[in-house]
Amino acid sequence: MYLTKSISAISLGALLIATTGFAASHSDKAAKAAVGARHAQMQIIAYHTGILGGMAKGEAEYDAEKAKAAASNLHAAAMLDPSTMWVEGTENGMVEGSDAKPEVWTDAEGFASKLENLQTASAAMMDAAGTDLDALKASMGNLGKACGACHDDYRVPKN
């Protein structure tokens, strides 16, 4: 009898530990996935900015259609609802690979306004990219400023 009780207790304990372990690894995985999704979003933005930048620099020939497509994809990526990816507890130091400063959450209002600036800049780029090369070039500066301003306040320094 005593033995059965002990075995039950041990099993229950093991089960508890196992469950907690599972829960931790599960949330760990979810946090990693959220960070991964953010990086994918940034990559899509960087890729399309690269297409526009190549034209602005004169490394690629200006192509209105292509520029417009790049700008509209960029804008679509900028418009993604942040709430699913910028989940709490995924700042730098908490999740491997995360460069997000805790200020993303402690200063949520400021972060939201920086995101809005990006969306304004990417919307302006959509109009400019298809117009002509000069308009595209002029819009690059504002886009860069929007990226930089947010990285400055909400991303840990790279090096």
Partner: peptide
């Protein structure tokens, strides 16, 4: 381009004091 828009050749952006 970096001095103008802050974009690196990889289209990351300048951060920190450099921004």
């Amino acid at each position: 381009e970096y001095f103008t828009s802050g974009f690196t050749p990889e289209y990351d952006s300048a951060g920190g004091e450099m921004a």
